[in-house]
C-alpha cells in the first residue's frame, strides 16, 4: 500500500540523512519526494511517497519517525490525493 509521509523537521544539516536512513534500514524505497523550507527557514517540510507492505511495520515506522529528535510533526496519508500531490511538485 502506498503512503505519503508529510514530515516537518528542523532545518539542519543531516536531518534528511537521518530520516532516510530509517527507510533504508527497512528496505523501503522512496518513490517520490519533495522538500521545502518553511517561510521562516527554521524547518523543512518533506513529503515522501513510499510503500510499506505490512500494517504492523507501518505502525512501527510511524512511531520511530515521530520520536526522532528533529521531527516536529508527521502526518501520514494514503494515496487518494496522489494526483494532487504530484501536481503540487510540478508547480
Amino acid at each position: 500500500m502506498h503512503e505519503i509521509i508529510i514530515c516537518k523537521m528542523k532545518n539542519r544539516v543531516g536531518v534528511l540523512n537521518r530520516f532516510t536512513g530509517l527507510l533504508t534500514r527497512r528496505n523501503i524505497n522512496i518513490e517520490s519526494a519533495s522538500i521545502n523550507s518553511t517561510p521562516d527557514n527554521k524547518a523543512v517540510v518533506a513529503k515522501f511517497k513510499i510503500q510499506v507492505a505490512k500494517a504492523h511495520e507501518r505502525e512501527h515506522l510511524k512511531r520511530v519517525i515521530a520520536k526522532q529528535i528533529d521531527v516536529l510533526s508527521v502526518q501520514w496519508d494514503d494515496c487518494k490525493n496522489d494526483l494532487e500531490f504530484e501536481h503540487a511538485i510540478v508547480k
Partner: peptide, 10 residues
C-alpha cells in the same frame, strides 16, 4: 555524522 546517524539518538 553519516556513519553514526543510525546508531545515535542525535
Amino acid at each position: 555524522l553519516s556513519m553514526t546517524a543510525p546508531i545515535t539518538k542525535q
